[in-house]
Structure formats: C-alpha cells, structure tokens
Amino acid sequence: MSARVRRLLLASLAPAALAAQQPQQAPPAPPPPPRDSTPPEAYYGVTEWREARAKLTPLMDARGFTVYIIGDMEGLAAAVRNATEMRPPTRGGGTDHERFRVELTDEINAVIAGAREAGATQFVVNDGHGGTLFRNTLPDRLDSEAILIRGYPKPIVMSTGLNPEVDVIFIVGAHANAGTPGIISHSFAFDSFTVNGRMLNEAGIAAFIGGEMGVPLALASGDQVLTAETREMLGPIETVTTKLAMSRSAGAGYSPAHVHAELRAAAARAVRRVRTGELKPLRLARPYQVRFCMRASYDPWFVGQVRALKGLRQDGGERCFAYTSQSAEDVGDLLNRIEWIVLKP
C-alpha cells in the first residue's frame, strides 16, 4: 500500500489531465518524479530500536500481565476498499477513513476488555497501519489505561519497543499475505518473505520478532484468508474471522458489533492459554536465513535503494535478496529501512 500512496501522489502531479484537454499540443515530457534517498537518521532522526526498547521497558508492569496489541486496518470488520477507507483525504483517501479509525479503536478496546477479564493488567497498543503514517487509533477513544505508540518513522515499525517484559502479542485488523486472495492482501514492501524457508505474513513477522524474546503471538483477526494462513504459520492460536473475502476489495462482513463480541471472547481465551503455557513463542533456528522479493510493481529506483542497504545479497532475481542474521530485531530493523524507502512522508 505504501507504494500506492506514493504513486497516487505522483499521479496527482502529472500533467496527464491537462494534456487530455489540449490534444493538439504535444504533451511536455513529464518531469522526473521526485527522488529522495535521504536515510532516516538524517531526515527525521529515527530513534535507534534499542533506545525505543529501553524507553518502553521501564514503563512495563513487570509483576502483571502485559498485552502488546498491533492495530492494523485492512482486516477490520466491514473494511474492503483501500482507496477510501484506509487513509484520509489529505493522503489521497476518503472521508470513510475517519469512520474506520473509530472501528479500529473499538476493536482494540474489545480485545483489551477481554484480556482484562482474563487477568491481563497492562496494554501497549502499537499503531501498525501506514495509511496515515501510523496515526489511526483515536487517542481519546482508546481505553485510557493503554499506552499508545503512534507516529512515523519509528523503529521496527510494527514491533516498536517490544521487550521480554511483554507477555503476549495480539494483532487486530490484520490482512492476508501478498499474493493471496485476501482483502487488500500484501506484506510490507514484498511479494514474498521467508525466514529459514518459512513463509511469513506481517503477523508471522511480528510473531518471529516476539518469539525470539519469548513472547508468543496468540490472537490474530482479519478475513478468512488471514486467519487460515496465520494458523498454518503459527499453529492453533486464537483467531477471529471478521469477514469472508470475495476478492481483494469485496467480502461478506459480519456485523461490527458481532465482531467486537468475538474479539472480546477470543482475547480472554488467548490470555488464559498463554498463562497455562499452552501457546508457545515462535522460535526459529539461528542464524536466520531471510529471503525476500520486492513487489514487482515497484519501479527499479526503489529496488536500487534496497540493493544499497548493508548486508543484503542478490538472490534469485533482480528484485530478490537474501540476508543472514543472528537477531530477529536486526531483521526488523532491516524491514524498517526498506519501509522507509517506500513510505517517506
């Protein structure tokens, strides 16, 4: 989606509409699109991921039970359309986005309520949706006890500050992996992403980063494609199917009220199953062999920028790379650098 945002912005600058009105005149060559290769440090000063983790850790309730909730939007109840529902008018979207910000916040509040019933004491919400540069959750509607991580750029974008004091990870409003028939299916900037040969979607990547520090991902919600594929990747975790995808932009949705009730019940079950030790963190063998292919829709400039990142090896095609690491957070940091290349504000 990040690339779509960018292309949309570029398209609105292109003189195509003007040329159509004056067919006699040869249209002037379009200006080259603006290209910005500034690294994140120099641009806004992204805090190093270790520092973000060091800032969140002392806020943790070490003797309680902490739930880290990643809020995305594509998998929310009733959401189907990227162009209007996933970002606000000021970023090329539509006014419906504002309604879905409410829905996002309500779905997060539902899982908080359920987890609290099962004994969870603390809640960290990480806004994980790039449509508004990670500022979708409504701060004044969210459960007032929750800590909310918002804004962009931020380190390890969907796992900012994650640390071993966290007891469980939930992902709400998640979408199915790139290349699947799920609603607005994609995975960061990739057509495919594997660790040690294991295909991971965005929920899977969050589980991988959390898993290394002993934190399991125990709940995922989204369309039926997302819930099925995530159980296949992570085992029998709690899932809530919010809608049945019929195409990448249509589906049969359950009532949001019904979804909230399901989320609440599933969150309570997830916390109980983690406390009894039934749900385990995802641990993969080191060193991690990461392989990924950039989206085919990206123009070569983006791919060139990615190629210039440290530690990547070309692997199996122009757009495909391999990376070896001993640290899942390092892999997360790499993802963040790639995200930055395609999603500069």
Binding site: Y44, G45, V46, K55, L142, S144, I147, K154, P155, T160
Partner: peptide, 16 residues
C-alpha cells in the same frame, strides 16, 4: 510521552 523519533512516540491516554 517518550520520543522514539522526531514524529513518533510512546504516549499515554489523554485522560491519563
């Protein structure tokens, strides 16, 4: 709030 970038932070609820 705790800054984790020039435009990102760990925040508390407005009520808190």
């Amino acid at each position: 709030k705790y800054a984790v970038g020039r435009m990102a932070a760990i925040t508390f609820s407005p009520a808190k």
